[in-house]
Design a protein around this nucleic acid. Sequence first.
DNA 1: GCCGTTTTCGGCCCGACTGTTTTCAGTCG
Length: 577
Amino acid sequence: MKEQALATLFDQIADILEFRQENLFRVRAYRRAAESLASLTEDIERLDQEGRLREIPGIGQELANKIHEYLQKGSVRELDEVKRSVPAGVMALLEVPGVGPKTAKVLHERLRIGSIDQLERAARAHKICHLSGFQETKEQNILKGISIVRKGRERMHLGLAFPLARTVLDMLRDMPEVLRAEPAGSLRRMRETVGDLDLLVSTRKPAKVMQAFTKAKYCARVLASGQTKSSILTHEGYQLDLRAVAPDSFGAAWQYFTGSKEHNVRLREMAGRKGLKINEYGVFRLSTGKRVAGREEADVYKAMGLPWIPPEIREDHGEIEAALERRLPKLVDEKDLRGDFHIHTNWSDGNNTLDQVAEAGRKRGYQYLAICDHSQSLKVANGLSPARLKQQMALIRAFNARSKGFQLLMGAEVDILNRGVMDFPDELLKQLDFVVGSIHTGFTQDEATLTNRMIKAMENPYVTLIAHPTGRLMGQRDPYPLNLDAVLDAAKRTGTAMEINAYPKRLDLNDASARRAKERGVRLAVSTDTHSLDQLDHISIGVGVARRAWVERSELLNCLARDQLLAWIKQKRAHAH
DNA sequence: GCCGTTTTCGGCCCGACTGTTTTCAGTCG
């Protein structure tokens, strides 16, 4: 998995080239290459060995050579020189909102400013407003920008972003002037974290909406406010961007503000070749200026000769080519799900009783829930002893006997101990319907040890699903070292499913890894890891990750009816013997 | 630095807001 390191390198180079004010298209080429590498589903070293690097979108001869050099030597001479050309601290200045490459360059050359601390001192000492082209306002804005950076403009995970968006959208929808209000940006694309919350309204009175937005009680500071576009900070420090357009333009604006930027750039390039121009107001014929689309989003795509593309895959990761060739995936939909796996109850560290969980599952319209409480060695989570697990199984059997339609599956989240030994004996696992294998300890082990440990667990015929495979907790804990390619190959070989854990801080596998799994033919499952009933709702976020990974209904374990599911599990068990 | 049913050279998306501007550059998304 050297793709990630290369992507980071190319991104750094793009930053530096931008700072040095070199050809912006060269900068863009590095950024596009970085994007491509970050989302690559194949192994870069294999592509290199087979001489297929140039098949990667955005990789030409030059970058292919650099990738080859990196894979051979661990660094690229020419790029090391580029890196050395700019002091690291200067690049940090670009993190300050309002400071771009031009401003940073002047600050560095004229005042020798090489860090955010130095920038703050210079601004406080009023040294900046004396530079030509700078005045007091700019100096004040720089200070404001620094305070925003200092607070840490943290990206929100979707578990925070959705409730916030709902609150603001509800208030907007309550305004008589607002005809329609929708989320856009990375929120609509279901990216795992969201920087700014992008919202869009359709209205004939934009000024009034803007005014209400910038005066709302959730607004702590107005960053920008115009006739059709405003940005504010909430009291918690989150940035909200609101755009207002007329109903005729809503579709075009929604398409535009949903992004991604890369997707839109591709679309606009295509438009140019067709003698059309796309902007947020519509699609226009260049020759006549006549608008040919704009009210509905699908019309914008139609004007490009494309079917509508689901927001979750608008990343320029191959969706435009797929759309052109009419081979877009039919993405899995939340409605396709028949059940949820990996559900905890108060038998271990969950908050709810078996009956409460079952009732909630039935209410959601599921056919089944897999009850998967912790295993014995996870003492902090009140892990079940074999005896208690057997008691729980008896209760589940009794529940199923009196329940029509909806059923519980007897399961457990079983710790994968050292050397891949499972925390319950096979004799016990054999009696369960559904076994989730998890690593909860030994995160500091090296990559080979952890990888072998996980693969050993997958080779156990009774392990159905590997939960949160990389162990990451966004903002808290990095993923532990794992050779994911080897793990996914083993999943395919052994018929073990891999989890997309829908807990907002986990989302593990993430979109890129899940797509890698899918490409290998590995069966995926979305599960909420529910510890309290409201967390069942996280399923929509997990489905979002699956959709971002191009996962179709047939590729998701949750979409199987109960009988099919049990048959699928049986297959692995039979195969192993 | 990439890329080609306009092209192997000469293009490369488009517009809003801000500040310092009397016509536009810088930044952002």
